[in-house]
Amino acid sequence: MLLNVDNITIMPDDSDKTITKNVTFSMEEEEVHALIGPNGSGKSSIAYAIMGLKAYLPAQGKIIFKGKDITYASITERAKMGITLAWQEPVRFEGITIAEYLEIVAKNREESAKVLKLVNLDANKYLDRKCDNTLSGGERKRVEIAAAVAMNPKLLMLDEPDAGLDIIAYGELSSMLKKIKEETGASILIITHREETGGIADYASLMWDGQVIASGEFKEIMERYCLMARGEKKCMIEPCPKISFKARKQSV
């Protein structure tokens, strides 16, 4: 097993409010897993907890990565173990070029150009541009994904990769994610509430009011989500079984 999120509850440092409660789900190597649910259901908070952001360290529960308890490891330690996150709203860095940003992890310009190509950006046009507010939201988002991919991660978390994209970029997203999956071989955790974005996922976990209420095959979970979004909560009654990823791969 690659990742085991075991019963974690997140409460921000300065409040007694619970963001997520007893969240449990797991991922196998090479699995693409979608964390779906409405706005405010706690999806991004789970990604931040897996990444190790101080404000999102679990009040209880464990995060196990490749058999190692990383619940209280630093962000840097987790990154060095192969965990990374492409943010929903990437920050802009004043004075830092895209090449400099990518070369934190990419070995050289050539490697940086390669990851930019994966996100459909022309290296000749972009490498020397500043990673600041001269880039559009969509461009910055692609650069963010490229920087995460450049790490050659074991676990790549994409926090709402579809947010803020125009219709053309949105249309390209699915094939871009497929390419990333094929070329990196990374396990991918996609946080989304859109069916098209999560389309490459093998499995999904549905979050509602800070809890994972079902995990299973992506399509099935998405159907449940749609029903719940329409107010038909009866789908919560039956648990959704999760077939092991290895077993599913063997059956294909």
Binding site: M51, T76, W87, P90, E94, G95, V105, A148
Partner: peptide
């Protein structure tokens, strides 16, 4: 958030601070 972003790429906190400051400089 700037620090978290750079640390998620593997930099230590000090390295991340340094890179951000150099950018502004």
């Amino acid at each position: 958030k700037e620090l978290d972003t750079l640390m998620a790429r593997g930099l230590t906190e000090d390295e991340a601070v340094d890179m951000i400051i150099r950018g502004i400089m």
